[in-house]
Design a protein around this nucleic acid. Sequence first.
DNA 1: CCATTGTGGTTCATTTTTGAAACACCGAAG
DNA 2: CTTCGGTGTTTCAAAAATGAACCACAATGG
Lengths: 302, 302
Amino acid sequence: MSDRLSNFDWDDLRFFLAVARSGTLRGGAEAIRANHATVSRRLTSLERGIKARLFDRTKSGLKLTQLGEELLPHALRVEDEIAAASRFVAGRDSHPSGQIHVSMPSGISHTSIVDDFAEFSREYEEIELSFQVTNTFADLARREADVSIRYAYEVTDDVVGRRVLRCARAVYCAADYAKRINDDGGEGLTWIGWNEDEGDKTAPWIKKTPFPHARLRHRINEVATQVAMAAAGMGLTFLPCFMADRNPGLVRAPFQDPVLDRSIWLLLHNDLRNTARIRVFVDFLVRRIKSRRDEFVAGAVQ
Amino acid sequence: MSDRLSNFDWDDLRFFLAVARSGTLRGGAEAIRANHATVSRRLTSLERGIKARLFDRTKSGLKLTQLGEELLPHALRVEDEIAAASRFVAGRDSHPSGQIHVSMPSGISHTSIVDDFAEFSREYEEIELSFQVTNTFADLARREADVSIRYAYEVTDDVVGRRVLRCARAVYCAADYAKRINDDGGEGLTWIGWNEDEGDKTAPWIKKTPFPHARLRHRINEVATQVAMAAAGMGLTFLPCFMADRNPGLVRAPFQDPVLDRSIWLLLHNDLRNTARIRVFVDFLVRRIKSRRDEFVAGAVQ
DNA sequence: CCATTGTGGTTCATTTTTGAAACACCGAAG
DNA sequence: CTTCGGTGTTTCAAAAATGAACCACAATGG
């Protein structure tokens, strides 16, 4: 029965073919990206399995025996079927189509990532991207979105996530403001803080910044507004570099370098992992973002 | 080019198939004689290679994803080619020795043909016969059997077949039952029909029998049981003569003669045509069966 | 309700496979 | 003749794959 099928390693046929084609162990090994010693051993194992020689091993290479010669067409047909299967899995998503619901924080809207969206949209005509901008994690399990782009330190375990890049942040302010810092030496500076930092006006984290004496004066829970406030000269504020560097009204405050911040995450629902359009989208995004690594890392020590 | 081919371990397809068939890791592992942990890892590796899930892993087993479902036919074709190659290397022997896997329907188990098996076994000590009794056609292409004995009107073209004999069938019943027919003149008779004759209680074929008014009351899909039921006096039933005549509990019902039925076929895979042991076996069987022609034809007009 | 069975997942010691290097050999070219 | 570049083979440490023993969980059947 299937004993005889299972009996040998199908992969050995791949080695057999490689050697049959090249005529030498080393040639076959190279084609298959393996060591020629390995190839030799696999052939030996195959021959032992069928209890017959497939090659005559000479000092000038390997030559097919008659049996090997007769086995060759069979092996070729196997390879054809493998190739067909391979083509299938490779080509399954050549023309993906459908909708993708993307959830993301508003901060992303003002970064180069939207250019990636545009590029993706041009490349895949049949895919419709729709965006839901929210600062809370979309509930993927409930299918509020197919893909969620998040900027966070960690994500919970119950989602399928890919950490794209660990990013950097720095203190930003308006150009005029930066000039004032240099001139005044830091008198009367103010912070624009994040909303969650409720409480007193000198939040603990301020102590660890390059401007520990600046006063926490404004709070905001929306990045776009935060950027606008800083650009309007209302104070210092921490911003991810890849968000702030794009804004011509902002400069990095002096006396500091970018430090590690959160990561960009691409989260998706488990059921959608192998959906062609989702995979294509996620892969595309990850590739594009990583290719602009410097923009996100901004020289912060990883 | 061959990058994609070499990219993954061909042997992984074997694991894929085993699990696709059994539906569980452990089942697949057993079929392939490996550990279920290994099977799981090979699948994972395969899935990682093609960057997509092939199975949904649930607590109750593994279920093919759509992609897996679509990959399956490719994998089956690969397996077929492997089987062909395997058959080739296995069949190269010239002395009649080795194993022969015979597939046959259960009905054959109760005929004189098993005596032929016994005789063959005595005559060829070195050949091991193993039987797989199934009422579906064994998949010869996939090497589920070397030789398949079938009882059918025709066979599909994709196998090499020899029609041994056109056989006859007749209506059988228990001896007592036959007596009742003669006495009562056919009142309250019942049919034991084949399972596939789903539907109403007076199937069309009954009209063409010598007992058109008997009621279809029992259905069965296993010949041995069918015979037992008839022998127990549960009704009339059509049976191939060479199966029924051997049973002392059955007699041919009155008012009828045997009519033409299906043929006995010996099917084998093309690659095995010239394998010594297979040839010997098939020739032996054909010769023996034909020598007892009357037993099978039972006087039906050919 | 709990015990049982069967599922996939995980861990870890063990086995197997692998690759790099050294080896022995051959044939052709200098 | 030697040299050189090419064989296949052998060796051995490192890496990878494997299997046994668990685990947690879900369904099943008393």
